[in-house]
């Protein structure tokens, strides 16, 4: 039972961390290697909110706004010239991640920061005392996935984004301003990444390099998911299960690389990953 809960909550955390990266990759076909930096920025928004004496939950909207604003600037200055050079976009965003990491270091120092707990304590479930926050993560993942789906399926921006994904040439020919769709998508994806950073604070220590540790796992999941939130949810469950099982029964170190290895193998066998499954 504990394992099952661990699997579900691990999958939820993976989903939260990957959602912003997926939103950007799905529409723009660009891998935002500064994703780790946005997670860090989000976590430091929680630090700032605490210093300002705000309610810890206020860090969530703050992080989304800061992340989206930074995303807007980054899309305009760095991503826009590189849509036709996707490999270079990986590198430029990686460089951007270095820059953001160093700026945070200059502002806050390289020490670990303490953030207030969003939700403490445990709850009795199936005869176990389980971390309340990990259970909340499942709710958060469902909310994030649900709002992304609602945004994509239910709004005009979402419709335009889907049109750009399916057939960008036709979308342009119908007069859709694809540059604006891209800008909005990148801003929302970056906002989601920063939001995820806040949600990570109770689970991990906050320091200027915290994001990098999460980047590769998120990146592999997104490659396997291909661009669909549903496929991402499946991928998170499968890979979360593997990670928990390998960590529990074999070794935690191998557990941490199992996601990456499994993703590489899945992509070797089926280049489109879970998107068709």
């Amino acid at each position: 039972m504990l394992i099952l809960l661990d699997v579900v909550t691990t999958a939820a955390i993976l989903f939260i961390v990957s959602a912003g990266l997926l939103a950007i990759f799905g529409v723009l076909k660009i891998i935002n290697f500064a994703h780790g930096a946005w997670l860090t920025v989000g976590a430091y928004c929680a630090v700032v909110a605490a210093r300002l004496g705000l309610n810890p939950w206020a860090a969530l909207p703050l992080a989304f706004a800061v992340g989206a604003a930074l995303g807007t600037v980054a899309e305009w200055l760095i991503i826009r010239p590189l849509y036709r050079r996707p490999l270079d976009a990986i590198l430029a965003t990686w460089g951007l991640g270095i820059v953001i990491g160093q700026l945070i270091t200059l502002a806050f120092g390289r020490d670990v920061q303490i953030t207030p707990n969003l939700l403490g304590g445990t709850v009795a479930l199936f005869g176990l005392d389980y971390s309340l926050y990990r259970l909340f993560a499942v709710l958060a993942a469902v909310l994030i996935g649900g709002s992304c789906a609602a945004l994509l399926e239910g709004t005009r921006l979402g419709l335009k984004a889907r049109a750009v994904i399916m057939n960008e040439a036709l979308a342009r020919a119908l007069g859709i301003d694809t540059a604006r769709v891209r800008l909005a998508t990148f801003a929302i994806g970056a906002g989601l990444s920063a939001l995820a950073g806040v949600l990570l604070t109770p689970l991990t220590s906050v320091d200027p390099n915290m994001g990098v540790a999460w980047l590769i796992g998120a990146f592999m999941l997104v490659m396997v998911a291909g661009g669909s939130f549903a496929a991402l949810a499946v991928a998170c469950l499968v890979f979360g299960a593997v990670q928990v099982l390998v960590s529990t029964f074999v070794s935690p170190i191998l557990g941490s690389i199992s996601v990456a290895v499994l993703a590489a193998v899945v992509l070797r066998i089926s280049p489109r990953g879970f998107a068709r499954a």
């Binding site: 005009r156 419709l159 399916m166 057939n167 036709l170 119908l174």
Partner: peptide
């Protein structure tokens, strides 16, 4: 490739409007 085959007829029409 004149249509979005996976979108509904309504959404195909909707995309033509401001």
């Amino acid at each position: 490739q004149p249509l979005f085959p996976d979108l509904t007829v309504r959404d195909n029409l909707r995309l033509a409007l401001r």
